[in-house]
Amino acid sequence: MTLLQVSLIAEGPLDEQVLRQLLAQSAPHLNTGVCYGKHGRAWMDVNLARYNQAAQNWPYVALADLEQDECPPDLLRRWFPYGRHANLQARIAVRAVEAWLLADRDALADFLGIAANHIPQFPDQEKNPKLVMVNLARRSRLRIIREDFVPSPGSTGLVGRNYRGQMERFVLDYWQCTRARDRSPSLQRAILALQQFQPLMP
């Protein structure tokens, strides 16, 4: 079977890792290429329409965080006012990609060194999943997790100094989307869409 080459568009480096892992685990018919973007949501808001236009020649999978936006369909309408090309799959994590990571409860508990019952049951309902992640790490038995995840007292940093490095490690070495999908409806929808994604090349 020849694999279809798709490129990625991600809001940030963590989204990229999640997207790569998600595709590798759930859509083996797709071969992931380069990842565009990684300049935050504002960049996505401005540029996605251009990638949508280029999608007539190349397939893309995009991933962004919903953040404080109303709901995914409204955001999609804003991104693609004239319609989304079938070769571009745009997935939105509710409210942030951390919710998809929180959804793999046992693996995350193991990684963070905390008890699984501290992790929210329904991560898609959390207003700020990133903050939830940081607060969970505060409870960690492991010093290195606390040091890397939690901002120092008085700092204006939202997360600790190696939050990204640690989260990437979790995604690459622990996270399984097949376990996480049961607790996150937005991840569930993403997996179904990617499994059925059949880009048409000219």
Binding site: S7, G33, V34, C35, Y36, G37, K38, N47, R50, Y51, Q53, A54, Q56, N57, W58
Partner: peptide
């Protein structure tokens, strides 16, 4: 072809080409 179609859609060289060097 992939980079070309992005440039033609108005994506800058920074956004269309640099990701290939990541």
């Amino acid at each position: 072809p992939e980079i070309r179609s992005l440039l033609e859609a108005g994506v800058t060289a920074a956004d269309a080409v640099l990701p290939h060097t990541d």
